[in-house]
Design a protein around this nucleic acid. Sequence first.
RNA 1: GUGAUUGUAGCUCAGUUGGUUAGAGCGCCGGUUUGUGGCACCGGAGGUCGUGGGUUCGACCCCCAUCAUUCACCCCA
Length: 453
Amino acid sequence: MAQIQKPSIPKGTRDFGPAEMAGRNYIFDTIRSVFKKYGFNPLETPSMENLSTLLGKYGDEGDKLLFKILNSGDAFADVEPSLLQNSNALSLRVCEKGLRYDLTVPFARYVVQHRNDLAFPFKRYQIQPVWRADRPQKGRYREFYQCDVDVIGSNSLLNELELVQITDEVFAKLGVNVCIKINNRKVLSGLSQVIGYSDKLVDLTVAIDKIDKIGLDAVKAELAECGIDEKGISIIEPVLLLQGTTAEKLAAMKKVLAPSPVGTKGVEELEELFGYIATAGIRQDVEIDLSLARGLNYYTGAIFEVKAKDFAIGSICGGGRYDDLTGIFGLPDMSGVGISFGADRIYDVLEGLNKFPKDAIEGSKVLFSNMGSAEVAYLLPIVASLRAQGINCEIYPDVSKLKKQFDYADKKGIPYFIIAGEQEIGDGIVNLKNLATGEQKILKKEEIAAALR
RNA sequence: GUGAUUGUAGCUCAGUUGGUUAGAGCGCCGGUUUGUGGCACCGGAGGUCGUGGGUUCGACCCCCAUCAUUCACCCCA
């Protein structure tokens, strides 16, 4: 034992034992049930995609975080020696596949490939793991699950509303208070136009996204570093500091963005969406957050982010509208919008706030003792009959001391234990013990099922 | 990719200016109780102190390297 290296799993990956799986399935089931309720259908795509499908969709930063898969066979067979100096070019030469980085891009690829078979607007949900070669830390894993809902082929902002409703309902069911933050990329574009730096949109969004973390002054410094002049910064500043009601925020933004048609469109979209939201009876907090930018390159309209109010772990959902994602794959004019629930972070939130229901583990209801072959023969038909009635139960497989069998039941959290030895067999009965109270009952075979309900 | 942090029993951790057989709690196994668990008491197994070098009469402790861990930044679920 000491000689052998302890086995391990790769950095940023995890095993999920029975206890974790109970919690995870509770989350997946809850989310899935809401997705279905809104008319979304399931989709699964392969773990790996062609690298060409993935590259360039997530920005430079995202490209670096892609897990690439070495070609099978002798991948390096015909590699020119000069390539060995350039790891970037080399990796493209020897890897033609990569692990999926999110579920949205594979979804867009799927839609383009199957465009003739789909009914549009196409609504699908997808719950699968994704992989990112990030350095792991709290709430960040290299393999984690996303639960995506997307509608593609409709420009209506009712779709955005539906995503807000879904988010609202999911977190109501999970018992978590969240804040749903909404922004619009067009507003950000408009902002960059208004200050005369429409080419600096990405720098602008990256900088103002940080305002919560590093503060106004640091953001201004970063903007200046990007080459934006004082006049531009002074135009942006009041917008970043917007306070008050949604209506007040919208009015102020409208004013600033008036010179920009795109920006004005963005404000109008926000207005319309918040108009819907006001009438939809949303219970969770929903607010406009201009500092919300989101790095993913493909968003063009609404942007969503959800944070837990009572637990610090970064965002637990993110999404937005993308007008051109399918265009990259050769199908233009197909706008989509979606949101992704981060199941692993939601798990951490539920655990941190102690919000998992107590009965999440659906293990055996009763354990049957094993006191020998005659006793087992007597019990097996009873076991089978309970199972036929939908009661989870098991029989201890080895003949051993009752202490050991009791311990086993305790550890697995099985609430009842049935003892049947010579005495019981003779009388055609069974001894049912409630392990929590210690109470014991003598029951006829037919009475067992009723006693367990 | 950048900056830190930690690495001693299955788990959580002690280990005094470097000194002989490296400790505790929990867990595990056995016994008190050969058909009645949780409690209690008694006993036991289990570690080449992450790995590889170096300094030293002597290293868990100091130095270097390496791997792993955790956290923060970047970015994100």
